[in-house]
């Protein structure tokens, strides 16, 4: 099972700390959604950038470099997706506004629509169908359920329930995450599943959502490898490097 985390400078813990905590909690890997947290993705001197493979070797856990595109509108998002796609394994677009949600689910280059209910954004059958057709995973963000109280949490739970009903009806792909900004916000998979089960989710469905991050990473790594031509076509053994 994988978890998608934020790391320094976006969060309060470095990639290595998130990795060691996640390894202790029993995750198979983490998806680092902060653009500058991993080397090779433009980390500057002020923020310690770690090499994903070195961290992975050190702690025995898969570290996937990802980018979270958080912009104001579809036009800006489109440019950022184009840049991010070639540089990162997983591309997430932060939703939270109707136009951005719509853009993200209609763009096959996007892997994950993150936090679709965060702001004023809504989700409906049109978006669910588009997400299914374009293979865009819809994120179920359990962060507010784990960390907020009172009215905000009730609204988050209500939104999650509505999203679940739509997504399961149309069989759209999905991912589940606790959206941890530091190692303290990270929760072990069993805890995440238990909390989601209290919120009305099916435990196996939630585990599947946690595994989906790993599947996205595997698929994209294969696509980005040199042997990949197009789906179903790989470079054979008679082909030589020129």
């Amino acid at each position: 099972m994988y978890e998608a985390v934020h790391a320094s400078p976006d969060g309060d813990a470095t990639v290595a700390r998130q990795a060691t905590t996640a390894a202790r909690y029993g995750y198979d890997g983490i998806v680092v959604r902060t653009r500058d947290a991993l080397a090779g993705s433009g980390g500057d001197a002020a923020t310690p950038a770690a090499d994903a493979e070195a961290v992975a070797d050190e702690y025995g856990i898969d570290v996937v470099d990802a980018v979270e595109i958080d912009v104001d509108g579809p036009t800006a998002a489109s440019g950022a997706v184009g840049n991010g796609r070639s540089e990162h394994t997983v591309v997430c677009v932060v939703g939270g506004d109707d136009r951005l949600n719509r853009y993200a689910v209609e763009e096959p280059r996007v892997d994950v629509l993150a936090r679709p209910n965060a702001g004023s954004g809504g989700f409906n059958h049109v978006l669910a169908r588009a997400a299914r057709d374009n293979g865009v995973h819809v994120e179920f963000d359990l962060g507010p359920v784990l960390r907020r109280t009172g009215g905000g949490r009730v609204r988050a739970l209500a939104d999650l329930r509505k999203l679940r009903e739509i997504v399961t009806y149309y069989d759209a792909p999905y991912v589940v995450s606790a959206n941890a900004a530091s190692h303290l916000e990270l929760r072990a998979p069993r805890e995440v599943v238990a909390v989601a089960a209290e919120a009305g989710f099916d435990p196996e469905w939630v585990r599947e959502g946690l595994r989906a991050w790993g599947r996205i990473a595997d698929r994209n790594r294969e696509r980005r490898s040199g042997d990949f031509m197009e789906p179903g076509v790989r470079r054979g053994r008679y082909e030589t490097e020129r």
């Binding site: 309060d12 290595a16 700390r17 961290v55 050190e58 702690y59 190692h183």
Partner: peptide, 10 residues
């Protein structure tokens, strides 16, 4: 800006 969680690796 407060504490940052790091590991021996960092």
């Amino acid at each position: 800006s407060g504490y940052v969680g790091a590991a021996a690796f960092d």
